[in-house]
Amino acid sequence: MTTKILQDAMRRVEAWPEAAQVELAELALEIDAGFSGEAYRATPEERAGIERGLNDAGEGRFATDEQVRAAFDKFRRV
């Protein structure tokens, strides 16, 4: 990626809703941590979500193929 492409992207991001900007910044920091050799540390909210997912999997609760498709379709429209 060239500097011009990055600058272009950042100009566009300025028009995004604040929540989307925060999400992008968090993602960029995660990517940066991977380059710096830092270990990733999940937030308390992420850890709680992981725990819920593991509990659900342990109890055999899984989404149907249709539910998964609907979720992906929803997020692709955003």
Rank of each mutant, 00 (worst) to 15 (best):
A70H: 00
I5L: 15
G37W: 04
R76V: 11
V22S: 10
L27E: 15
Y40P: 08
I50L: 15
A39I: 06
A33E: 05
A33W: 06
P44W: 06
A39T: 09
I5G: 08
R77P: 02
E38Y: 04
Q7H: 15
A9I: 11
W16S: 04
L29N: 09
I50G: 02
Y40A: 08
T64D: 00
R61I: 09
A15V: 10
E26K: 14
Y40N: 11
A20D: 13
W16K: 05
Y40V: 14
A15S: 07
A57I: 08
K74I: 08
F75W: 14
E66H: 04
T2I: 07
G58Y: 06
F35P: 01
L29M: 15
R47E: 11
Y40T: 12
R12F: 13
A33R: 11
D8T: 12
A63E: 15
F72S: 04
E18Y: 09
R11C: 11
R12G: 12
L27N: 14
I50Q: 10
R12H: 12
A33S: 03
R11I: 14
G53T: 01
R52P: 00
R11F: 13
Q7Y: 14
R76S: 08
A19F: 04
E66Y: 03
G49C: 01
A25T: 11
R61W: 06
F35T: 04
D8Q: 10
L24S: 03
F72K: 13
E46H: 07
P17W: 04
G49P: 01
R61T: 05
A28M: 12
F72D: 07
T43E: 00
G37R: 02
D73M: 11
R41Q: 13
D32S: 14
G34Y: 05
A70Y: 02
E59S: 09
E45I: 09
E30D: 13
D32N: 10
E46Q: 15
V22N: 13
R47L: 14
F75G: 01
R12D: 13
M1L: 08
V22F: 10
T64F: 02
F75I: 09
M1G: 05
A48D: 01
F62P: 01
R69V: 14
A48H: 04
A71F: 10
R47N: 11
A33K: 10
A19S: 03
V78T: 12
T43D: 01
R47S: 13
D8N: 13
G37D: 00
A63F: 14
A25I: 07
A48G: 00
T43I: 05
Q67T: 01
